[in-house]
Amino acid sequence: MFEARLVQGNLLKKVLESLKDLLTEASWDCADTGIQLQAMDNSHVSLVSVQLRADGFDKFRCDRQLSMGMNLTSMSKILRCAANDDIITIKAQDQADNVTFVFESPNQEKVADYEMKLMNLDQEHLGIPETDYAAVIKLPAAEFQRIIKDLSQFGESVVISCTKEGVKFSAAGDIGVGNIKLAQTASVDKEEEAVTIEMQEPVTLTFACRYLNMFTKATCLAPQVTLSMSPEVPLVVEYKIGDMGHVRYYLAPKIED
């Protein structure tokens, strides 16, 4: 028996919004420690990793490990039927071929349940090596979204360059060149408005705008986003899911042949 109840059901709605453009189907791996998902996009350029810890749920029961293969477009359609303040429960029997989503209004006066067929998906989890990143940048998630959106008008790629002075985002194309520089914030009223940079060595990498734009669908999840970069390795774009986990996107850089 698997059952996970989340009073803050809108977190799950937001997680699905942040995945559905990048992934069409994926497996949710459930264990007594929580729920995890790892999947690559169709063109194998990026990888998404989601973690939802058991202790972040209001009720969590997972008698035996199970992997629930789901069509994320369908899951997203179902979750859109839940109101933002609904309590969401996910339920499945052991070795079941379907999953049930239950949405309860806060006053318990409306209860809806939706059943969805599970899929058999080929599991292929990749090993992500432990990496000490050369630069770790934290910035407001909405600021990052704006920067990527603005620079996407100029070209297909964004160059992210991090030095002690700050971080620079650049794009070039037919209409011209755009550069956006962010300095580390000296002092801020709110922690979530801060730009912080932890840098071991300067690093410059080039990434496809298309993917960065899809990652920013997770902006609704968290006030801040963390970018971790090292020379010639994938960028990590991380959004926290409340205090129960994270969505991490890994994006392969564009590299000189």
């Binding site: 690559m40 350029v45 990888l47 990749l126 090993g127 994938p234 890994y250 392969a252 564009k254 000189e256």
Partner: peptide, 14 residues
């Protein structure tokens, strides 16, 4: 010109 790398060239299959 830079070429888009594949994520599989960085992360290992089990």
């Amino acid at each position: 010109t830079k070429r888009q790398k594949n994520i599989l060239s960085f992360f290992q299959k089990p």
